[in-house]
Simulated scan of single mutants.
Amino acid sequence: MTTWITICDTCKREGWEPGADGRTDGEALAEQVEAVVRPPLRTRRVSCLMGCSHGCNVAVQAAGKLCYTLGRFEPAEEAAQAIVDWAALHAESESGQVPYRQWPQGVKGHFVTRHPPLPEE
């Protein structure tokens, strides 16, 4: 089963100023996550996760599992690696829930929401 890391590529952290390359903070974080992600994880970019006060935002999702939104990340390699490491633990978990003691330090304090899986009907 695939676990998806959905990255908001329009996120701009407070005080964002366009740099020489014109990238948003979300685009910068997306590139860093994409550089370190490996199967069974996959990434996709979306324009706006509606968590502007929490930018940079990502969602970690898989069918039949709890879904999490994380935010308040710096667009940095350390943050990208922590996101991918936590998503790998999510992928290994039957329910998507990862015990706190296993969380990488870089995701602690970054959880914004948790959603139950959709019913199968």
Rank of each mutant, 00 (worst) to 15 (best):
N57G: 04
E34P: 02
T43H: 05
S93P: 07
G109E: 11
F111N: 00
E120Q: 11
C56H: 01
G106A: 08
M50Y: 12
E94S: 13
K108M: 13
T2C: 00
T43Q: 04
V84H: 03
L29N: 03
R45K: 14
A62K: 04
C52E: 14
V84S: 00
T69G: 01
Q105K: 15
V58N: 01
R101Q: 13
A76K: 14
A62W: 07
E27A: 11
F73E: 03
M50R: 12
L118Q: 14
A79E: 15
A76G: 09
A63Q: 12
T3K: 01
E94L: 11
V58H: 03
K65F: 10
H115D: 06
L89S: 02
T113Q: 09
A30K: 07
T69N: 05
M50L: 11
G26I: 05
D21V: 09
H90Y: 06
P104S: 06
F111R: 07
A80D: 10
V36R: 06
E77G: 12
V84Q: 01
V98C: 05
E121Y: 02
A20T: 13
T113L: 11
A35S: 15
T2R: 05
V112K: 09
H115L: 15
D25F: 10
W86N: 03
G26T: 04
A82K: 04
A20M: 08
P116Y: 12
E74N: 12
R23T: 07
G15V: 13
S47H: 14
D21M: 04
C67I: 14
